[in-house]
Design a protein around this nucleic acid. Structure first.
Length: 141
DNA sequence: GCCAACGTTGGC
DNA sequence: GCCAACGTTGGC
């Protein structure tokens, strides 16, 4: 199983929207590198949700419930999305400042390439952020 | 509001 | 195929 991180502007679609919807198709990705990651996702993979903008925090975890398929919000037919379902929020959101300050996390794609909206997360990074986020044990797929 | 980083577009 | 110009993202 792989781990990922997706970004969203909370003004556009926030974690609370996701909790309300319970499940959503993660549309709107319009970047080739991000699309590669979407295509690599498998059902059961766990994904951090990060709020960009004012929040700048990892706020929750979703799981992939449907592999990549056509993005209904795209007219050109070239972009894809996966379906995700809410798993848990982080009791204590992990801020970008914390991530940058943590030597184990400072190498994250989130820090190195802040513009990539869908990105891989290493197992070490995953467990560290779960811990910082106040999860006693990381969720199972 | 500014600007750095990055991606895309289009002329050559 | 290169690269300048432009647009967008997102942190500060």
């Amino acid at each position: 199983m792989n781990h990922w991180l997706v970004k969203s502007e909370p003004e556009t679609y926030s974690w609370s929207d996701l909790v309300r919807d319970k499940r959503t198709d993660w549309t709107g990705v319009r970047n080739y590198a991000a699309r590669l990651h979407l295509r690599a996702m498998q059902v059961g993979d766990l994904v951090f949700v990060y709020h960009s903008g004012d929040d700048k925090s990892v706020v929750g975890i979703v799981k992939v419930v449907n592999e990549a398929h056509a993005d209904s919000t795209d007219d050109t037919g070239q972009w894809e999305c996966v379906d995700v379902a809410a798993v848990t929020d982080l009791p204590k959101p992990v801020t970008l400042a914390e991530i940058k300050a943590n030597p184990k996390l400072a190498g994250m794609v989130l820090v190195r390439n802040s513009r990539l909206s869908v990105q891989p997360v290493s197992p070490t990074e995953w467990s560290m952020i779960c811990k910082l986020g106040g999860l006693a044990k990381p969720p199972q797929a």
